[in-house]
């Protein structure tokens, strides 16, 4: 990334705001059962907080927070969590992605609730990592030209 002149006000405000955006993203993921929210929205918020740091500071600081090479492995891990939840239901004798067979709680509806939470975590992780990695890839070449 091109080294822009680092405006101290912009970097300070970005440093202050970014953790709150990240916290709000986590809230949106984990509170998705009870209020508007879920994995896709929360993952996008997490990606926004990481990209904000990359835009406001030098690219080196952004790499310290979330290295670019982590993007694809974390995204694959998110998708694997999703597939793993489905396969776990298969393992305990049900159908693929039928959370009623996951031995996480007594009641069927609570089991489905836990299954939804697991899936949302996977979706949020994948969306965050993939969006950040697309951003990194698009800006990759700038310092070589």
């Amino acid at each position: 990334m091109k080294e822009a002149e680092n405006n101290p006000i912009v970097s300070l405000i970005a440093s202050i705001v970014s953790p709150f955006i990240m916290l709000f993203g986590l809230y949106v993921i984990f509170h998705g059962h009870y209020s508007p929210g879920g994995g896709f929205q929360g993952g996008t918020l997490l990606a926004a907080s990481i990209i904000l740091i990359r835009l406001a500071h030098s690219s080196h600081t952004g790499q310290l927070q979330f290295p670019a090479k982590l993007g694809t492995p974390l995204g694959s891990l998110g998708v694997l969590i999703y597939y793993g939840t489905g396969l776990a239901a298969l393992w305990w004798g049900g159908q693929f992605l039928n959370y009623a067979f996951l031995p996480l709680a007594e009641e069927i509806s609570l089991r489905r609730s836990w299954g939804i939470l697991l899936v949302e975590i996977g979706v949020g992780l994948a969306v965050m990592a993939i969006l950040v990695s697309i951003f990194d890839d698009l800006l990759e070449e700038e310092d070589h030209d």
Partner: peptide, 15 residues
Amino acid sequence: HDTHSPNMVTAILAD
């Protein structure tokens, strides 16, 4: 009743 989550969008999306 099915998923114990009041947010129907989440229930449809993930279940």
